[in-house]
Amino acid sequence: MPERPAIEVRDLVKVFTKGRVRALDELSFEAAAGTILGVLGPNGAGKTTAVRILSTVIRPDAGRAAILGIDVGQDPAAVRRIIGLAGQNAAVDENLSGRQNLLMIGRLSHMGRGPARRRADELLEQFELTHAANRPLKTYSGGMRRRLDLAAALVAEPPVLFFDEPTTGLDPHTRQEMWTWTERLVRGGTTVLLTTQYLEEADRLADKVIVVDHGRVIAEGTPASLKADLGATVLLVTLEDHERATKAAALLAPIANRPPVVADSSLEINVDDGPKAGSEAMRALDGAGLAVLGLVLREPSLDDVFLRLTGHRAEGAIAEEPPITAAARAAP
């Protein structure tokens, strides 16, 4: 008998009346136990709203969701005992020390005083924060703070974790570090839902990726399968200006697997046979008197998946999601 998915989401709808934003529009997905599900989407796609509903912070307007079979709407108290939350909104108390924060979360998770204290020390050691354990959080560097953030989600050893954009605003080095931590976690059988705007992050960490835009899933699969759907190779041609790129796109459409995408003075097409398509393209453009400034053949990335699906790049900001608590924590 197949095991029930750790996270099940069915037709979730959430409308924010303030901006008349349909943040979630019948969002549905599943995550198998012990896997990392990457939820990929631009700012305002509804990722954070989904996490807030799944972690019982807000209620959906319609649809249902269950964590390990427990319905988030019917028994939010039980859900809170089996989840951990970390990321852009779930902060820690700036004025308390790292140890105090973990201790507080342990106590609020209804652990005994002794176990809460031991667990705090254990996590501080595990995340290499013992040296700063008694310093107020205000003095922590960005990387240390995120590590504590992650530790805070793990206090009660929840079997399901939500990481909402855990690396947004981090430098590449710290981001790498966070990835290593996350990978270690899943080895222990934890299910992780990770939202991100970074395709590289989903590519590196996720077993399965769902691409979310305007509150609905527009694609899902493993990172490899999503990329494979595009064709074997991406051909990137740079011309003199946008107008010429548009002309070139029309010219190259017959050799592409899908309609070409034009951005500024370049265009991208997906092809099966890269070298052949490259020479064909050169010939066609040459014949039309369009000067080619650059021509690149490469493996498709999740970025290409994104561009293809949404018609825009992943990091192009869309309207900000309206937060209910103004949780605008300044990035350190």
């Binding site: 108290a77 939350l85 108390d93 609020l108 805070a152 608590t325 103004a326 949780a327 924590r329």
Partner: peptide, 19 residues
């Protein structure tokens, strides 16, 4: 407190909300 993210975390903990 309402402007801080820590409230968001409290909401996801099994604690008594009124606390």
């Amino acid at each position: 407190d309402l402007q801080k993210g820590v409230i968001e975390r409290f909401r996801a903990l099994p604690m008594a909300r009124a606390a």
